[in-house]
């Protein structure tokens, strides 16, 4: 079951490429830790996108070569990065002024669950005894103009991540604009979830069968 699910639809790189194509030229973009970071590799030629990392850098460049890492030049995932010409550093209050003040155009995030109304849960499974940690996720979803979620359509155990109502603690209410999964690209509108594109070989009926929330074709 799990094996089968992993083979369906687009792979992670294809999903990241779908996201990259939807980011316009000139956008200021914040990429979440993990899969969202892959989006940077697929920005089409001719588009100039500036990456923001909330620990205090606008104009984040590629990963440095091995041996050239600087422990004081890192991204929000605490990994070594580089700067592009024209980059700038700033403190945390300025960084979150960019976020909360709606100056960042697009944020791409992972998800545990997304609800039909755009509610996002991506910071905690709410397990008793677990140590809660939130970082900048709640600020990003509250402040960035467009929120894209990139995630597998179902969990490793086959449960739908696109749900009627999130059972995990929320990161933000009605904040997600579009969801990119291995099976489809889905728009979140005030009137519900609308399928924008289906992965090759995936029918709307099959997609609905893998989705707890109701979809509109």
């Amino acid at each position: 079951m799990v094996e089968k699910a992993e083979l369906q639809g687009w792979d992670i790189n294809e999903m990241a490429q779908k996201v990259a194509l939807d980011i316009p030229d000139g956008a200021y973009v914040n990429l979440g830790i993990g899969i969202p970071e892959k989006v940077a590799a697929f920005v089409p030629e001719g588009r100039e996108v500036i990456y923001h990392t909330e620990n205090g850098l606008l104009g984040m460049g590629k990963t440095p070569e091995a041996g050239k890492e600087d422990p004081e030049l890192i991204n929000a995932g605490k990994k070594a990065v580089t700067t592009i010409p024209g980059a700038c550093f700033f403190h945390h209050a300025d960084s979150f002024t960019m976020i909360r003040g709606k100056h960042i155009d697009v944020c791409v995030l992972g998800a545990l669950q997304v609800a039909a109304n755009g509610d996002l849960a991506n910071w905690s499974t709410g397990e008793p005894g677990a140590i809660p940690a939130v970082g900048g996720a709640m600020d990003l979803v509250a402040g960035v103009k467009t929120i894209y979620v990139i995630t597998r359509h179902t969990t490793k155990t086959g449960e739908s991540k696109i749900v009627k109502q999130c059972s995990y603690p929320l990161t933000g209410k009605a904040v997600v604009n579009r969801i990119y999964t291995n099976l489809a690209v889905i728009d979140v509108r005030e009137t519900g979830l609308f399928v924008r594109e289906l992965a090759p070989g995936i029918s709307f009926e099959y997609l609905q069968s893998q989705t707890e929330a109701r979809l509109n074709p």
């Binding site: 403190h91 945390h92 209050a93 960084s95 979150f96 909360r100 939130v134 900048g136 709640m138 600020d139």
Partner: peptide, 13 residues
């Protein structure tokens, strides 16, 4: 532990 969103922590400071 008092858990605070990162931007809220920055702004509170």
């Amino acid at each position: 532990l008092e858990l605070v969103p990162q931007g809220t922590l920055a702004e509170r400071i």
